[in-house]
């Protein structure tokens, strides 16, 4: 199939950018979205033009590097699917596709579709860990954790930190990302000890790093390729209230 791509091109931070039009010809429906872009880039390079810069790494939907807003939806809108796992069979011959970078103040644009997402790492640095020693493998099994709690924590730990929640949020808030880590650790005995400091430090870091506030649009959950649920934001809100009394 043949497609018309409208891709955001920007040479660098603080440079003017605009949507440029490219034709993607003879695209196989079995190709992934990134493979389609690879071929467009090969044609650009052959023609002596700058290829489109975009982030990618594992290409199997687990690393959280790919970060493109496709037709106005982070990761393209297929349920629980990252851009790299989005296949061209979801498009039709002759489609126009708009490809834009994550947009948020906290994610400064570096080039074309590549943004700097280290602000998410800084939120984790502020408290997304446990500072107690949890021992080796055998010691780890010595602390019994009820199955539902372990499942709950694992569901929250599924976050791959791609930033789609921020890109989709009308407020540029990282509340889903932050809450996933707060909820994951607060559900486990090793994490409970520091739960109060953690929720305050991480939400404060979110604010300091230029993210907005959550106003319950739930756009984040809809955009999340891992299906992280907004129930974790409710959990963060409960943890915050508990911290007020500690």
């Amino acid at each position: 199939m043949n497609l018309t791509l409208h891709v955001w091109r920007q040479a660098g931070p603080n440079q003017p950018g605009k949507l440029e039009v490219y034709e993607a010809k003879h695209v196989s429906p079995d190709q992934s979205f990134l493979e389609m872009l690879d071929e467009v880039n090969e044609e650009l390079i052959k023609g002596g033009k700058d290829p489109i810069s975009f982030d990618h790494d594992c290409r199997e939907g687990i690393c959280g590097m790919c970060s493109q807003v496709i037709n106005g939806v982070p990761h393209g809108g297929q349920d629980r699917t990252t851009v790299c796992q989005l296949h061209m069979r979801t498009f039709k011959d002759g489609d126009s596709i708009f490809i834009e970078p994550w947009r948020a103040r906290a994610f400064p644009l570096l080039r074309d579709l590549v943004v700097d997402r280290t602000a998410l790492d800084r939120i984790i640095e502020s408290g997304g860990y446990t500072s107690c020693h949890t021992g080796g493998v055998a010691d780890g099994n010595a602390i019994l954790i009820p199955k539902p709690d372990a499942e709950y924590a694992m569901d929250a730990a599924e976050c791959i930190g791609c930033g789609a929640c921020v890109a989709g949020c009308p407020n540029g808030s990282a509340m889903l990302f932050t809450s996933a880590k707060v909820a994951q650790l607060a559900a486990l005995p090793q994490g409970k000890a520091e739960a109060a400091q953690r929720v305050c430090a991480m939400t404060e870091s979110m604010k300091e790093n230029g993210f907005g506030n959550c106003t319950n649009h739930y756009e984040c959950q809809a955009a999340c390729p891992k299906g992280i649920n907004v129930k974790f934001i409710a959990k963060l809100n409960r943890e915050f209230q508990k911290s007020l009394f500690e």
Binding site: G72, V73, F98, R103, N171, N213
Partner: peptide
């Protein structure tokens, strides 16, 4: 915190 919108805006 969200100064620049998208050219195509599709809210889910």
């Amino acid at each position: 915190a969200n100064p620049q919108g998208y050219a195509v805006n599709n809210k889910l």
